[in-house]
């Protein structure tokens, strides 16, 4: 187990370093950063000044190491647009996005795992068809369109839920559904496939031959094994949802990281964008690592070699 954890952790560190290189190089993607910073109509002298002040004239490897060390100590740079420390802005917005992501994932799992299990117990039954329909629609519907449809029904037609803001928990209902619904089909289909495979396995027959009650067979013996791949999938999907939150937060005007990303793109606020990419990526890497650990906990074949 310890070896496995160390191995996974090493891989996570390597991925994080790769991501840091990518997000660092973002600054050079749109051409010479000194020209961009100096602004339109700046003289050659101004540009040279900017280059020297910001250190763009040094070898790129030094710039990267400097930037990385700063990032590790919590200094993610300075936003020229907001005239403020990038890290403080990001960590002020981060909790909102995390709450939204957790609610969305929670909604997705609560909807999709029971449906997947039911569909697997009775394949080709009515409930299986309904679950399949939900999956197909979920996969086919763009999340922004679904979000707008929700607003149209629940806020404009029926006036049940607030459209924008983060004032109360009611504000999170529609965004969570809109964001989580997109994840539902994959999780549901994987649960169904996993359950069907497990239910036809020899050890389920053994469990029944022991006279165990149907609920014990289903939950203790079947679901426990079928859920293992779902854990990995949920972690990956959570990463996708962080990306999807850019759209959803913008639609519902939720003051989270996704909204901030969109604003920063609008303002060409490079240090901010760079930091958001880095923070989201690191968060995603941490999540994947945790999913690996959870998998090991659930599957003794990984845990006990």
């Amino acid at each position: 187990m310890l070896i496995y954890a160390v191995k996974r952790f090493g891989i996570a560190i390597l991925v994080a370093l790769t991501v840091s290189v990518l997000s660092f190089s973002m600054i050079y993607l749109s051409g010479d950063p000194a020209i961009a910073l100096a602004g339109e109509g700046a003289s050659q002298e101004d540009i040279e000044n900017v280059r020297r002040v910001y250190g763009f004239d040094r070898p790129i490897i030094f710039q990267y190491v400097d930037w990385l060390l700063n990032a590790l100590s919590g200094n993610l740079g300075h936003s020229n647009y907001l005239k403020s420390d990038v890290a403080s802005v990001i960590f002020e917005r981060l909790p909102t996005t995390m709450i939204l992501g957790a609610c969305a994932l929670g909604f997705a799992l609560i909807l999709s795992i029971p449906l997947g299990v039911l569909a697997a117990i009775r394949p080709n039954s009515l409930i299986d068809r309904i679950a399949l329909t939900i999956a197909v629609i979920g996969q086919a519907m763009p999340s922004f369109w679904f979000a707008l449809t929700l607003i149209l029904w629940f806020s404009i037609t029926w006036r049940l839920l607030p459209i924008t803001g983060t004032g109360s928990w009611l504000n999170f209902i529609m965004p969570s559904i809109a964001l989580g619904y997109y994840v539902t089909p994959a999780v549901m289909r994987l649960t169904r496939a996993g359950m069907m495979e497990v239910l036809s396995s020899d050890y389920i027959r053994t469990a029944r031959a022991k006279g165990l009650r149907p609920a014990t067979v289903l939950f203790k013996h079947a679901l426990r094994n079928a859920i293992i791949p779902v854990v990995s999938l949920a972690a990956v999907q959570f990463g996708f949802m962080l990306g999807g939150s850019i759209v959803i937060e913008t639609i519902f005007a939720i003051n989270g990281l996704g909204f901030l990303a969109w604003e920063s793109i609008q303002r060409a606020d490079l240090p901010m964008m760079q930091a958001i990419v880095l923070v989201l990526s690191v968060f995603y890497i941490v999540l994947t690592f945790l999913a690996d650990m959870l998998n090991a906990f659930l599957d003794p074949r990984i845990r006990v070699s």
Binding site: D202, Y203, R205, A209, G211, H221, R224, N225, P300
Partner: peptide
């Protein structure tokens, strides 16, 4: 089942729950 009448199967490799 498993109480007064038990069964042993052909496939020992897959007949026990891995978890």
């Amino acid at each position: 089942r498993g109480n007064r009448m038990s069964m042993i199967f052909q496939e020992p490799m897959t007949s026990l729950n891995p978890a």
